[in-house]
Structure formats: C-alpha cells, structure tokens
Simulated assay, not measured.
Amino acid sequence: MCNLSNNLIGLLNFLTFLLSIPVVATGVWLSKQADTECERWLERPIIVLGVFLLVVSLAGLLGACCRVSCLLWLYLFVMFLLILVVFAFTIFTFLVTNKGAGQVLQDRGYKEYRLDDYSNWLQKRVNNTHNWNRIRSCLQSGRLCSTFQTQFANDSAEQFFAENLSALQSGCCKPSNDCNFTYQGPSTWKKPEGHANYSNPDCNAWENDPNVLCYNCQSCKAGLLQNIKIDWKKVAVINIIFLVILVIVYSVGCCAFRNNTRERWKY
C-alpha cells in the first residue's frame, strides 16, 4: 500500500483542488448577489471552506507528487486537527440535540413547540437579541408566513386544525393553542374582547400584522430549534462517514510521508 500511497494521495488532493474552485466561486458569486441577511450570512463560511480546501489540497498534492516532505507534514498536521474537530463537533451535536420534541395536541394535526424543551446552549443562541434579529430577518425575507398564508388560505377552521404544519409554520405563523384565539384565516386570528391574562407570553406577542405575526414568540424560536435539531442529526451521521474517510486518507498520507522520508535518506 505504501508504494502506491504517494500517487493515491496526489490523486485525492487533485480532485479536492478541483472541487475547491467551484466552492470559492459560489461564495464570491453569493457575495455579489446577496440581497438578504440569509445570503450575507451564508457566503462567508462557503468562501472560507473553499479557500481551506484549496490550500490544504495544494499542500497535499505538492507534498505527495513532488516529494516535498515539509508540505506533506503540514498536510498531515492539518488533517489530524480536522479529524479532532470533526470528532468533537459530532459528539457536541449529539449532546445539544438530545432534548426537545413537539407536543401533540388533541384534535390538532400539527404539533406545538416549547423553547424550554431544548438544550440550554441552543436556547442561549436564539435568546440573544442580535442573533434572533438576524434569524427573524432571514425568516421574513424567505417569505415563510406569506407562503403559509397562501397555502392554507381556503381552509376552514376544521381543515386548518387538521393540517400537518412544519415546526416553523406552527411556531411563527400562527398563535399558540393556549391563547384560544378565534380562527379567521391562517395568519388572521381574533383576540378575545377586553384584557386577558395569558399564561403563555406568546399570546401577547402575537399580531395579525404580516410583518409581526409570531416572529417574536418563544414558539417561533422553538420551531427553529426543532429544525436545527433534525438537520444536525443528519449532519452528525454524515460526519461519522466523513470521519471514517478522513482516517483512511490520513493513514495513506502517513505512508506517503514515510516514503518521502525513506527516499530522502537514500540520498
């Protein structure tokens, strides 16, 4: 295996180098086209990822094919750090997503979500005012609730209550079931006459204004965390597969480095 290791590492890094070019190009393109807070947030990690892949793949390619031991050593060092980071992030992902689930309601097709059900770390992220303002802007510019309004515009109350809503739709685009508001439309609800003391603070936060709705509600934050939980569980599975691949590539890289060292001592 060691006799083929240099060529194999060279080939893998050449493919990674080719992959990094469209990744960087995509990030740059997004930075030019960005109109929303979502796109502005997304472009930076894409560019960083692309540049990282570009630099690391070049180091591995030159180190393996040109027998430059210092570059190959740098490549292996970065790969080792990457393995540690991916392993730590995978464990962290499982820890912060092991809590939280939707609450089943009687005579309702959808679930409702409570912020207190999720991990403290995730709660702190969405309760940060600066973070939530950016997220709320992203949800609004993504037309989450306007699409929701159009999708269920012709529903009667009975039909709407039977709908299987997404976590974000349930949390951000309608009031909590605790409020007992009267249904007039998917995003239009009539509050009871007079002053009401609600046990759920989301009831006071709700407004029929399309720009307000329940974007400031705890249920909206909980709906977002439910989406994050589902996505991060998928990411954790992918990370495990990625981790196995990284370990294999790292092992082959160690053989290539050993080859370089042996050839240098021959001379």
Score class of each variant (00 low, 15 high):
Arg40Phe: 06
Asn164Asp: 15
Glu43Ala: 15
Val247Gly: 02
Phe160Glu: 04
Leu84Ile: 13
Gln149Asp: 15
Gln106Ile: 08
Leu71Gly: 04
Arg114Asp: 12
Asn216Phe: 06
Asp231Asn: 12
Ile245Ala: 15
Leu224Tyr: 14
Gln169Ile: 01
Thr261Leu: 10
Cys255Gln: 14
Asn177Thr: 13
Asp155Phe: 12
Ala167Ser: 15
Gln218Leu: 10
Ser31Ile: 04
Asn133Thr: 11
Gly142Leu: 09
Asn197Met: 07
Ala64Leu: 08
Arg67Phe: 06
His130Ala: 15
Gln103Asp: 13
Lys174Asp: 00
Cys65Ala: 03
Asn260Tyr: 08
Cys217Ile: 00
Leu4Tyr: 13
Asn164Met: 05
Leu62Pro: 00
Val78Thr: 12
Lys234Thr: 13
Asp35Val: 10
Ser31Phe: 12
Thr188Cys: 03
Thr93Trp: 01
Val249Asp: 02
Gly50Ser: 06
Gly253Cys: 04
Ser57Ile: 07
Asn133His: 11
Ala59Ile: 05
Asp117Gly: 13
Ile135Asp: 01
Phe52Tyr: 14
Ile230His: 11
Ile135Arg: 00
Val237Met: 13
Asn154Asp: 14
Ala59Tyr: 01
Arg136Lys: 15
Ala167Phe: 02
Cys179Tyr: 03
His195Met: 09
Val104Ser: 12
Asn6Pro: 10
Glu207Leu: 05
Gly223Gln: 07
Phe152Gly: 01
Thr93Ser: 15
Thr182His: 08
Ser176Val: 02
Ser146Phe: 01
Pro192Cys: 08
Ser5Met: 08
Thr36Met: 07
Gly253Asn: 04
Asn98Leu: 05
Asn13Ala: 08
Asn216Glu: 13
Gln149Pro: 00
Val96Ser: 06
Val212Phe: 03
Leu19Thr: 12
Leu8Thr: 15
Arg125Cys: 02
Val56His: 10
Ser187Asp: 11
Arg44Leu: 14
Phe152Ile: 02
Val249Tyr: 07
Leu74Asp: 00
Ala59Phe: 14
Gly109His: 02
Asn208Glu: 05
Ala222Phe: 06
Asn154Tyr: 07
Ser170Pro: 08
Val55Cys: 11
Ser137Gly: 15
Leu58Asn: 01
Asp35Lys: 14
Lys234Ser: 11
Ala153Asn: 10
Leu144Tyr: 03
Ala64Trp: 05
Cys254Thr: 11
Cys220Ala: 08
Arg143Met: 10
Pro210Leu: 05
Leu213Asp: 03
Ser219Arg: 14
Asp116Ala: 15
Trp73Arg: 14
Ile241Trp: 09
Cys203Gly: 02
Met1Gly: 10
Arg108Thr: 01
Thr182Gly: 02
Ala167Cys: 04
Gln169Tyr: 05
Pro192Ala: 09
Arg258Ile: 07
Leu8Lys: 04
Pro186Trp: 02
Asn260Ala: 15
His195Ala: 12
Arg143Asn: 13
Asn260Val: 11
Val55Ala: 12
Met1Asp: 10
Asn197Thr: 11
Gly223Arg: 05
Cys145Leu: 08
Ser57Glu: 06
Cys217Asn: 11
